[in-house]
């Protein structure tokens, strides 16, 4: 089997901490951009407390 870069196969699955880092960085950078009127919402399991399977779940933005 060759290298695939697939989490859980030949690279580690993302951690809970990494999920929060991605979200925090995304939000802070978008806020810093100062783009008036741009809207970002989060929904799905990551934004429902206790419902996210870290390492498997997607992060949903709308």
């Amino acid at each position: 089997m060759g290298k695939m870069n697939h989490p859980g196969y030949d690279i580690p699955r993302p951690t809970k901490r990494q999920y929060y880092e991605v979200c925090d960085k995304l939000v802070s950078r978008l806020m810093e951009s100062g783009e008036m009127g741009l809207s970002l919402m989060g929904h799905g399991s990551f934004f429902r407390d206790g419902d996210c399977n870290f390492g498997v779940s997607d992060q949903d933005f709308f």
Binding site: E21, V22, S33, D58, Q59, F61, F62
Partner: peptide, 25 residues
Amino acid sequence: LFRQISVVFADALGDKKIKLQVCPL
């Protein structure tokens, strides 16, 4: 703005393998 936000997503994700579902409207 689209290009700027593309860079923001890239910086936020880095090399982390988290799947993002985004609905741009």
